[in-house]
Nucleic acid binder design. Structure first.
Length: 521
DNA sequence: TGAAATGTTGGGGCG
DNA sequence: ACGCCCCAACATTTC
């Protein structure tokens, strides 16, 4: 007896002609991962093609991302983003089914229970996920299921953008020049389906059972600041384009001004795609004529793209320096120094303000990230990987590709790395980029009464000034962990040592002698 | 997507 | 009036 599907009317639209009535309606799983949206979702569109029914599935499998499983801040975001996605699906007639990993077993079980014959997902590019997804795809196919991965989370697939030698770009500027030349190839975003033909509801897990929200109340400041989910993402982009994009080029480095897009967590979880960002930003700003701001903003989208392409080509860089010379760098690991940095108690105001902003909101202004990272790596000489792990655990936008790129850049061991001699002075950076001192005052209330010039450098303030402001260094606020000038000199010397590896004293004379002899060997 | 050291210039005080 | 010195202010070089 044919399935009941035969009696259903054929779906309207062009699919009717491509898929004659005699083919039974099929069921597909859409495996949602870091693409928690319904707009511009190639896997979802592919699953719905031909009038098929859909099981929308999210699988919680943090162990499959180890050692870079999502941290607490990221899990907080994920929880709320899944709530939002489930709401969007429900409004279109579908449920979000939640399962626990291992992902392969969950997919097989849901396929069996739903009768799905195909699985669609949008690709990820992190090393562990590339390996996992490859195994899953071949296993599913061997079991007779159709498994399709789609491009949906980058502007360009990493293997399609190469330099003249056919290699992955290692320097941002030529990378972005090549990408810009091909931006017209990036198609328009796909529309969100108005309705989703859902397969019968599956017995999934309640979201709460994933225990993504923290027990301790450290997330108190998060909800006021963030709106996870697809609606929140598009609202954030719209607000940025309306209010801040025109001045972005000038204001993006100012932590005392809310002039950045703050889209990073939305992009990380795929609540909005870079293709949407490109299309919406270009159209809006073309109308507004804010060309400089647009270019500057899209350039940052380019950095995200660059990080993903690099990580895809050099998967070992999550743990290993890209520049092999740094494998034997003389770091000076010190748990006490690391912990003081993590807690925002270094005695350097801009660094401490940033680390506290991070802890309390799950985010830190990009300029401050560079300064805080530079201080940890260069002045304190703590291993960049320790800093990368802390950022990964505490950022709502924690992203393995961007985080790896940023830390290796700071440490000088990355592909397009800061030159070894480029060492930030956190006090000068503070004076230059927080001229109103609004950022410092917000995050360092214990110093709020310190008069103007000294807020950037309390350790240099006259005793009378400190006393009048009610600040006793070492009690209300820490003394600096290190002397800035001295630690800078030490870093310069050590980094220069990596640049020109310690040679045997005989090396230079030996070379001279050989050239002098001319014809030997 | 630096900072500090060093070099140069030019105005003004002053003998 | 002139030369000398001092030192901002700016430019260049070096790490």
């Amino acid at each position: 007896m044919p399935a009941a599907d035969h009696e259903r009317p054929a779906p309207a639209g062009p699919s009717r002609t491509r898929h004659p009535l005699r083919i039974p309606l099929h069921t597909s799983i859409v495996w949602f991962r870091r693409d928690l949206r319904l707009h511009d979702h190639p896997a979802l569109v592919a699953a719905l093609e031909g009038g098929g029914r859909v099981v929308a599935l999210y699988i919680h499998a943090p162990q499959e991302e180890a050692p870079w499983s999502p941290g607490g801040a990221s899990r907080w975001w994920l929880h709320h983003s899944l709530v939002a996605l489930a709401g969007e699906l429900r409004a279109r007639g579908a449920d979000l089914t939640i399962a626990r990993g291992p992902s392969l077993a969950a997919l097989q079980e849901v396929a069996r229970a739903s009768g799905a014959t195909a699985i669609h997902w949008n690709r990820s590019y992190e090393p562990a996920l590339v390996v996992r997804d490859g195994l899953i795809k071949s296993t599913l196919r061997a079991a007779g299921l159709a498994a399709h991965s789609h491009a949906g989370n980058l502007l360009f697939e990493p293997w399609t953008l190469k330099n003249g030698s056919g290699e992955t770009f290692r320097v941002f500027t030529p990378f972005w020049r090549a990408a810009q030349a091909r931006l017209t190839e990036v198609g328009p975003p796909l529309a969100a389906p108005a309705t989703i033909a859902a397969a019968p509801a599956m017995a999934g897990l309640p979201l709460e059972s994933l225990a993504l929200l923290p027990r301790a109340g450290w997330d108190a400041g998060f909800a006021a600041r963030w709106s996870p989910g697809e609606d929140g993402a598009r609202a954030r982009l719209a607000a940025f384009l309306a209010d801040d994009a025109a001045g972005y080029a000038e204001m993006r480095d100012r932590p005392d001004v809310a002039g950045t897009s703050r889209l990073s967590p939305h992009l990380h979880f795929g609540e909005i795609s870079p293709r949407q960002v490109l299309a919406i930003a270009s159209a809006t700003l073309e109308r507004a004529g804010a060309r400089r701001g647009t270019e500057s903003f899209l350039r940052e989208v380019g950095w995200r793209e660059f990080g993903h392409h690099l990580l895809y080509a050099f998967p070992h860089t999550t743990e290993q320096p890209m520049d092999p010379r740094y494998a034997r760098f003389p770091w000076r690991p010190d748990p006490g120094l690391l912990q003081a940095w993590q807690r925002g108690r270094t005695g350097i105001p801009l660094v401490d303000a940033g680390m506290r902003e991070l802890w309390q909101t799950g985010w830190m202004h990009n300029r401050v990230r560079m300064v805080a990272a530079s201080f940890l790596v260069k002045n304190l000489q703590q291993p960049w990987l320790d800093g990368a792990r802390w950022f990964h655990d505490t950022l709502v936008d924690a992203d393995l590709a961007s985080n790896t790129l940023g830390w290796q850049w700071t440490a000088g061991c990355g592909a397009d790395a800061a030159p070894y001699y480029r060492i930030f002075n956190p006090v000068l950076q503070s004076e230059r980029f927080d001229p109103t001192r609004g950022y410092l005052r917000r995050w360092l209330p214990e110093l709020a009464r310190l008069p103007d010039p000294w807020l950037h450098r309390p350790f240099a303030a006259p005793a009378a000034v400190l006393a009048a402001a009610g600040v006793e260094l070492g009690r209300h606020y820490p003394l600096p962990l290190v002397d800035l000038a001295g630690s800078r000199e030490r870093a310069l010397a050590d980094w220069q040592g990596i640049r020109t590896p310690a040679q045997a004293p005989a090396a230079a004379p030996a070379r001279r002698r050989r050239t002098g002899e001319g014809g030997d060997a």
